[in-house]
Amino acid sequence: MGSKNKLKRFKENESFKNVIQPSREEVLKGLSLRGEWHSFFENNNPIILELGCGKGEYSVSLAEKYPDKNFIGVDIKGARFWRGAKTAIEGNLSNVAFLRTQIELIDSCFGEDEISEIWITFPDPQIKYKRTKHRLITRPFLEKYQYILGNDGILHLKTDSEFLHGYLLGLLHEGNHEVLYAHHDIYNSSSPPQEATAIQTFYEKQYLEIGKSITYTKFRIKY
C-alpha cells in the first residue's frame, strides 16, 4: 500500500464514529472508555473483541451475524481496519467498532470483567524462540485477557498454525485452564462448531483452497 493511500485512510479514520485512535500516552494513563464501553454502544449487550483484526472482515461478519452483541476489532494498523470500519458504516452496523492500539496494552483499554469473549483469528505464530513474547497467547497475555474477561469469559483461537495450536494446548494444560473444544482440523471434524466455521476470512479461504488444515480452540482461563 502506498504512503499516500495510507495517509488518506488514516485521515478518513478520523472522521469515522466507529474508530477510536488514542495515543499510546492516553492508553497508558487508562483509556477514557475503559470500563465505559457499554456507554459507547449505548446498550448493555455483551462486548466481544477480535484481537489483531487486520482488515476487520471477521469483526464485521460477526456483527452482522449477531446483532444482539457488540464487537470491537483491535489492531495497531489503522490503514488495514479502515476497510472494516468503512464497510460497517456503509452497512449501518452500529454494533461494531475498531480500536487502534497495541494488544499488550489491552488491560489499559478495558476494565475488569468488561468483555464477554475474545476472538484471535490467524495471528502471526511467531515461531522463532526470540519472538515468543510477541505471541498473542503467552502466559502474560492470557493473564491480561483473564482480567478483562473474568472467570466466565470465553476465548477462541482460530489458526492455520499447528505449532500455535499445540503451544496453546500446552499452556492450557499446564495452567489447568478449561478447554471447551479443540480440534486440529475443524473442517474435517465429525461435528465442527458452527461458530468457528460459519465465517471465513479472505486468507482462510485461500488456506482451504490449497488443502491447509484450520485449527480451532475454545477455552476459558482460570487464575
Score class of each variant (00 low, 15 high):
residue 136 L to A: 02
residue 151 N to S: 14
residue 15 S to L: 13
residue 66 Y to L: 07
residue 13 N to Y: 00
residue 5 N to F: 06
residue 111 G to L: 04
residue 61 S to G: 10
residue 222 K to W: 02
residue 59 S to P: 13
residue 129 Y to I: 12
residue 221 I to C: 08
residue 105 L to V: 05
residue 128 K to R: 14
residue 129 Y to Q: 12
residue 66 Y to T: 00
residue 154 I to R: 09
residue 158 K to N: 05
residue 27 V to T: 04
residue 218 K to M: 08
residue 33 L to V: 00
residue 8 K to C: 07
residue 109 C to G: 04
residue 6 K to T: 06
residue 216 Y to G: 08
residue 129 Y to C: 08
residue 120 I to N: 02
residue 56 G to H: 10
residue 90 E to V: 10
residue 57 E to L: 08
residue 129 Y to N: 13
residue 185 D to R: 03
residue 29 K to E: 11
residue 216 Y to H: 13
residue 147 Y to S: 14
residue 83 R to L: 15
residue 206 Q to D: 15
residue 145 Y to D: 00
residue 103 I to W: 07
residue 26 E to F: 02
residue 50 E to W: 09
residue 85 A to Q: 04
residue 209 E to I: 01
residue 51 L to Y: 06
residue 193 P to M: 13
residue 146 Q to P: 00
residue 143 E to L: 03
residue 61 S to W: 06
residue 213 S to Y: 05
residue 129 Y to S: 13
residue 82 W to Y: 15
residue 162 E to I: 12
residue 113 D to I: 07
residue 39 S to C: 00
residue 160 D to T: 06
residue 158 K to G: 01
residue 135 R to V: 04
residue 91 G to C: 14
residue 133 K to N: 06
residue 49 L to S: 09
residue 130 K to G: 00
residue 107 D to E: 15
residue 17 K to G: 05
residue 205 K to L: 14
residue 80 R to N: 11
residue 18 N to P: 08
residue 38 H to T: 08
residue 86 K to W: 02
residue 98 F to K: 02
residue 168 L to I: 11
residue 90 E to L: 10
residue 29 K to N: 13
residue 209 E to R: 14
residue 165 H to I: 09
residue 205 K to G: 13
residue 69 K to L: 01
residue 168 L to W: 12
residue 46 P to Y: 01
residue 92 N to Q: 11
residue 108 S to I: 00
residue 57 E to T: 14
residue 41 F to C: 11
residue 20 I to Q: 10
residue 92 N to W: 05
residue 80 R to V: 06
residue 68 D to M: 04
residue 199 I to Q: 06
residue 46 P to K: 03
residue 190 S to D: 11
residue 150 G to W: 00
residue 158 K to I: 03
residue 134 H to V: 07
residue 208 L to T: 05
residue 205 K to E: 14
residue 70 N to T: 04
residue 23 S to H: 01
residue 75 D to Q: 05
residue 87 T to H: 06
residue 165 H to V: 10
residue 40 F to N: 05
residue 112 E to T: 07
residue 183 H to F: 11
residue 115 I to L: 05
residue 222 K to M: 11
residue 122 F to Q: 08
residue 184 H to S: 15
residue 117 E to K: 05
residue 50 E to H: 05
residue 16 F to V: 01
residue 25 E to A: 10
residue 7 L to T: 11
residue 199 I to S: 06
residue 132 T to G: 07
residue 201 T to G: 07
